[in-house]
Amino acid sequence: MIYFDNSATTKVNDSVLKTYNAASEEYFGNPSSLHKLGLRAYELLETSRKQIAKLMGFKQDEVVFTSGGTEGNNWIIKGTAFKKREFGKHIITTQIEHPSVLNTMHQLEELGFEVTYLPVDKTGHISADDLKKAIRDDTILVSTMAVNNEIGAIQPIHEIANVLKDYPNISYHVDSVQAIGKNIQDKFMDPRVDYYTFSGHKFHAPRGIGFIYMKEGKQLEPLMAGGGQESNLRSGTENTPAIAGMAKAIRLLKEDEAKKADKMEQLKEKLVAHLKTMDNVHVFSQVADNFAPHIICFTIDGVRGETIVHTFEDRDIYISTTSACSSKKGLESGTLKAMNVRENVATSAVRVSLDESNTEKEMDEFIKNLDEIHDHFQILN
């Protein structure tokens, strides 16, 4: 089996799974309980929070646990909108955001908020100048992704942050779900950012766990009301075993991160170079400083993306259409549409997404099968 769908989800690391299982057996108490079993679970919870914060360069109380990227994005956007609505109801985002952002924006529009969706250029990047022109007196939030989940474009976070330095009352949120562990911290970590979103299953932690960074002094309206866990910010009994596993996953992720990212970049370079030699193939992910090292998006003219995916699956090779969250709906790539790619091309898009476990041997085998599949469809067309 060759698994090239790591942007959709990653396999839980074996040692992370051991940590999860051990925590489930030995720290099964509720962290909010007063007895010693609860205290032990609470100590593990806070030790994990401290470890994550240190590894990420955050303060311990700036890390708040969630169920993953979708909850994190929903909470930061809605929580900011509800907390700051007396100061304005205008939000700025982009046309290429993840559905958990775009659909949240649509919900807020139904509640009377106004949203500006910034366009992208032909490479899938937004313009800081466009952002500056879109800012209004009633703008309360800007939300952009760090790495586009469909083509891998790294957005100009520092340029955006520089614009927002002149607007300290506008909150800035970055969806960094696809960015962690790719040795690109210098491209998306900026002191002007108020909130970051992270999701554990994108970096070999269990599913159903994630965290947000919430800058010290910032406030969010809670979406989950209940027992007041997470400093009254996010109620619900914390998933302590998964949190401990996530802390372990981040520690492993940070070991030799540059070396791992370089390996992904080399595999990407090899595939992109080969794709560019093929007839009737379009490549939308560049080997460049403003693209992540793990995502390659391409099309084969005249062949729908889901057909390509299933043809590879028949050979025990797993890739995806451009977004796992939209793939079963048969939709064209939202990012390619925003880039003004023709619909008949955009519906042919597929995504290869790598991680540090992938090998050159796997890439060679993938390219061999790609050539065969490509030639087969060229004959049919």
Rank of each mutant, 00 (worst) to 15 (best):
P191N: 10
C325Y: 08
E360D: 09
E216N: 13
I135P: 06
Y3W: 07
E110N: 14
E306Y: 08
A41P: 00
S285Y: 06
E265R: 13
N6P: 04
I154R: 06
S15T: 03
H201E: 09
E71R: 11
D129L: 15
V303A: 01
G29W: 13
Y20F: 12
Y42T: 03
L118F: 03
V120W: 08
K215Y: 01
S199C: 12
F82K: 13
L17S: 10
A128S: 15
Q60F: 02
G69F: 14
A153K: 06
G236S: 09
E360T: 09
S127H: 15
S143I: 10
E221Q: 06
L223W: 00
F284N: 09
S357E: 07
W75E: 08
I180L: 12
L37K: 10
E265T: 08
V64E: 05
T123V: 14
P293A: 11
S333Y: 06
N344P: 01
S100D: 13
E159F: 01
T240A: 08
K83F: 10
M1A: 10
N369K: 02
G68T: 11
D121W: 04
D190M: 09
G226T: 07
V350N: 10
F58R: 03
A261W: 07
E257M: 05
D375F: 01
E114Q: 13
V64G: 02
I140N: 11
T104N: 10
L108W: 02
A338Q: 08
C297V: 08
I367Q: 01
A153V: 02
P168L: 00
H310V: 03
H201F: 05
L220I: 11
A8L: 13
E159W: 04
P31H: 09
Q286C: 12
L354F: 15
D5F: 12
Y3I: 10
F65K: 05
Q378E: 03
A349Q: 00
G305P: 01
K165W: 10
N13R: 03
V283T: 09
M339L: 00
G112K: 11
C297K: 08
D256R: 00
G88D: 09
E332T: 11
V16N: 01
R234N: 14
N169A: 07
V63K: 14
L253P: 05
E306A: 04
N290C: 07
I154P: 05
E265K: 14
D314A: 06
N232E: 11
G57A: 10
N103M: 13
G152H: 13
Y3K: 08
F291V: 04
S171P: 01
N369H: 09
E159I: 01
A288V: 00
I140V: 14
E109P: 05
D364L: 12
A247V: 03
S357H: 07
N232L: 10
T116A: 10
F366C: 06
A161N: 06
T47S: 15
F291A: 05
R49W: 01
F113D: 03
A261D: 04
N6T: 09
S199H: 00
L354W: 02
T66W: 14
K328G: 04
V63D: 11
H158F: 06
K165A: 14
L131A: 13
N290E: 02
N21V: 05
Y196I: 12
H201M: 04
H90S: 05
H310K: 04
A205D: 05
M224K: 15
P206Q: 02
L39Q: 08
